[in-house]
């Protein structure tokens, strides 16, 4: 009995610091965000008014917000599939042989640990319309030279390319972990059972056994690309003409440039709702189809 009581006290004491920090720094501010979303609070204002769903109504009417949502979806729609398929392809290619495995893994992973802001600056130089090496190369080949980051036609595409470059190595590493977890004997069994080539082996063993990894990578990729902010803040500020306005950047501008905290909080809630929906889809709908127990 004494040990149980001691255990209870120790357990409570050990969770207490984390519990207090959780309450003050995570739970209460999150709830405050939820409440703020229904007010017209502006930073520095002494009073705040309860305005119900007005913020959300404004959002629906706001062309800028619509563009922001559309841009975010396009960005996610470009970056997620390309970086997943690319990451899977790289993982298969790197794991296919022993030679150069560690070296190439490091090369493709490098962007993950590189300071995003600094690399964004490097990309800005790379994609510079007149002095950038990319356009210099296109010019040398006699091709057209787009204004990459400063034209509303190409800006989202350019940002997505940077996004893919940033996350492809991350996905590759996750897929490599998934690949090493596949029992070698299954490949041997597939060979004996009549798998004739790499594609047969992939269809029969690799792809189905990567199911849980792929689902996970899909969710995390979507959430990560949904959070795109750094490159936009550094390179385009949402421009030109809102062509690269994305959800978190809109939220940042509304909140910290225009100081409209209520409206910004409402945008944050939309962002949160999308994130939660994605996670829900992962756990409820898809998990059952990729876990075979």
């Amino acid at each position: 009995m004494r040990r149980l009581a001691g255990e209870a006290v120790a357990g409570a004491l050990m969770t207490l610091p984390a519990g207090i920090a959780y309450l003050l720094l995570l739970l209460l501010p999150t709830l405050a965000t939820v409440l703020l979303a229904f007010t017209d609070y502006e930073l520095g204002a002494t009073a705040l008014g309860w305005i119900g769903l007005d913020n959300f109504r404004e959002m629906l009417a706001d062309r800028g917000f619509g563009v922001s949502v559309r841009n975010t979806l396009v960005y996610v729609g470009l970056v997620t599939p390309i970086s997943i398929l690319g990451g899977l392809g790289l993982a298969l290619l790197v794991e296919a042989g022993a030679k150069g495995r560690a070296f190439f893994r490091a090369v493709f992973f490098l962007p993950v640990v590189s300071l995003t802001v600094a690399m964004a600056a490097a990309w800005q130089y790379l994609l510079h319309p007149t002095i950038g090496p990319v356009n210099a190369a296109l010019r040398a080949m006699g091709l057209g030279t787009p204004f990459w980051l400063s034209s509303s036609d190409t800006v989202l595409l350019s940002l997505a390319a940077i996004g893919v470059w940033e996350s492809i190595g991350f996905n590759m590493v996750l897929f490599m972990a998934g690949l090493t977890a596949i029992p070698r004997e299954l490949y041997a069994a597939a060979e004996v059972d009549g798998a004739r080539g790499g594609f047969d082996r992939f269809r029969l063993v690799t792809w189905p056994l990567l199911g849980p990894t792929t689902l996970f990578v899909l969710t995390i990729s979507m959430i990560r690309s949904l959070r795109v902010f750094d490159t936009v803040a550094v390179l385009t500020q949402g421009g030109p003409n809102k062509a690269s306005e994305v959800l978190l950047f809109t939220m940042y501008q509304q909140g910290f440039t225009y100081l409209r905290l209520g409206y910004s909080a409402a945008i944050t809630l939309v962002f949160l709702a999308v994130v939660l929906a994605l996670m829900w889809v992962q756990t409820q709908v898809l998990d059952k189809r990729v876990h075979y127990a």
Binding site: L26, P29, F256, M279
Partner: peptide, 18 residues
């Protein structure tokens, strides 16, 4: 807590810090 991205509590935390 795992479900909440760090951007969500940012606004009130900013107000509090300020």
């Amino acid at each position: 807590g795992l479900l909440v991205p760090p951007h969500v509590p940012a606004l009130p935390l900013y107000v509090a810090a300020s």
